[in-house]
Write a protein that binds this DNA or RNA. Structure first.
Ligand code: MN
Ligand code: MN
Ligand code: ZN
Ligand code: ZN
Lengths: 141, 141
DNA sequence: TCAATAGTTTAGAATAATTCTAAACCACTT
DNA sequence: AAGTGGTTTAGAATTATTCTAAACTATTGA
């Protein structure tokens, strides 16, 4: 019973990982749980690494990168490129756009529906639209 | 007269540079001219470096980066971040958006007006909108 | 015309994010 | 319990970019 209270929260992430065809290893379970419990946010690999460390998990950066890419592939997180120099991983995988605070280098979600794109051009022949990213770059002033 | 035919094209870029408060050095003139003559396109620092070399200019990469940042500051080019790992510099500084071909890692302009954003949210208090970037990510398939 | 000055260029080292390597490790099957 | 094949890891490698400090040059005004 003591054991169960601690272990239960893992059940879900284990299932998610299995559904994605990823072995539920110690590291992937820890990371998947951290990401799920983090709520909607935008993390760099380094930040996730730090959070894992804070939670008592000693996971190599290589593994963090591996997991983030696998999770991206599986649709558990979404990679956002706004800053030449580092990638952000978004735990909110629903369709939404972003403010980017250039001075703080931070992303903030824009509620779906607050940006309306009323005309999107056809992609060129043989190309298929993967995603439409809208980033509103702002500076404090 | 022989001389003039070769030199005249530089007159404009010299003026542009002066207007921007940048000394018209040999390197900056060469780069400004290359960029102006390139037509609308999206270049990486390396690509511009290669074009300079092709045109017979031996300019260090550090200078390419310096110039591109100064030109960006001055509004002569626009920096676009779509690809974690490298920046693109757009010689088309008019208001427009982009397709990004993820496999080729190439940008393509979308005519102004082909993307209509009919609702843009207010930025948070104290933040001022710098720019709205729309990137339509496509893959060939 | 010629310094003096301040801005510019440069090679090469340094940095930072990310990827690679190859050996140790461990999840899952049998 | 052993075999297997995927996984993790430390550390080296890679890549784009920035930094450093010395050499260079555009500009100015004597
Ligand atoms: Mn970062
Ligand atoms: Mn590149
Ligand atoms: Zn988001
Ligand atoms: Zn463009």
């Amino acid at each position: 019973m003591k054991r169960e209270m601690v272990e239960r929260p893992y059940k879900e992430v284990v299932d998610v990982l299995k559904r994605c065809g990823l072995r539920p290893t110690r590291q992937r379970m820890a990371l998947a749980k951290l990401l799920r419990d983090a709520g909607d946010c935008h993390l760099t690999a380094e930040e996730l690494h730090a959070r894992a460390a804070d939670a008592g998990h000693r996971i190599s950066l290589a593994t963090i990168y591996n997991a983030l890419h696998q999770f991206t592939e599986a649709g558990l997180v979404r990679e956002i490129v706004v800053d030449s120099g580092c990638s952000y991983f978004d735990t909110n995988v629903s369709d939404h756009h972003h403010f980017f605070f250039e001075d703080r280098r931070e992303l903030k979600d824009i509620d779906h529906g607050d940006v309306v794109i009323s005309a999107v051009p056809e992609p060129p022949e043989g190309a298929t639209v993967e995603r439409v990213d809208v980033v509103i770059r702002v500076r404090s002033s």
